[in-house]
Design a protein around this nucleic acid. Structure first.
Lengths: 112, 112
DNA sequence: TGCTAATACCTAGACACACAAGGGGTGGAG
DNA sequence: CTCCACCCCTTGTGTGTCTAGGTATTAGCA
């Protein structure tokens, strides 16, 4: 997988995962791996900075917990974050349509 | 349109356009605009460096022409370039599938 | 006991690439 | 004579991903 393509989508993927319930860094990477059929392996060097960026932008809020002697920093979507996710999903569809248009692909996106 | 998403796709778009016959910088931008329904406006600051990059990688070859007193630098796909385009199209589909997987979307035929 | 892997967080620096903003120039329309 | 469409190019900036390192706990295994 060409990592360059990931540019700009990482934040959306994080928002999406967290939108289904609070999650923490390590778990987010695992979720992304499984939900992308093993295609995306979100690296820590991109994950944590992105998480902090999203929190600074108030799209996520966080809290620490303790679990089996391991500390976890959970993130949850804010109201603003939920709106931002909707916007980014729309942007993604637009973008994919554009690319597919240039490529001459007739594919569309359908809700499951 | 979030320009960050374009990262990594610009070269593919150029290869795709040129694959349908030799073209030159300015024309490529116009083709991309129309084929993407006005969504992508490839900027010169990304276009020309990308063109030169692709030529250096031997995916494109070029030649100058004169047209109505204006010089044009035409680019055409090399054999290597054609293979590279096929590979990148495949990569794109993989990538889009991955993102759609995480988003809970499915690529398919648009229902009407 | 010591080693390794998995779980869990983080950051500094390298690197790639799209873009803004500048440069050059021609031809035609008002 | 000014402006726009056409046509090429480069420098510098910003942003975002990754590599490679750091810290720490727990569990499994030799």
């Amino acid at each position: 997988m060409d990592t360059k393509l990931l540019n700009g989508t990482v934040e959306m993927l994080i928002l999406e995962v967290v939108s289904q319930g609070p999650s923490y860094g390590y778990e987010i990477t695992q979720t992304v791996i499984s939900r992308s059929d093993g295609r995306f392996e979100l690296k820590e060097g991109s994950l944590y900075p992105a998480l902090h960026r999203l929190e600074r932008q108030m799209l996520l809020s966080s809290y620490w917990t303790e679990h089996d002697g391991r500390r976890r920093k959970y993130y949850k979507l804010t109201t603003t974050g939920r709106k931002a996710l909707a916007a980014r999903r729309k942007e993604w569809r637009e973008f994919a349509s554009g690319v597919n248009g240039v490529l001459g692909l007739e594919l569309g996106v359908v809700s499951r």
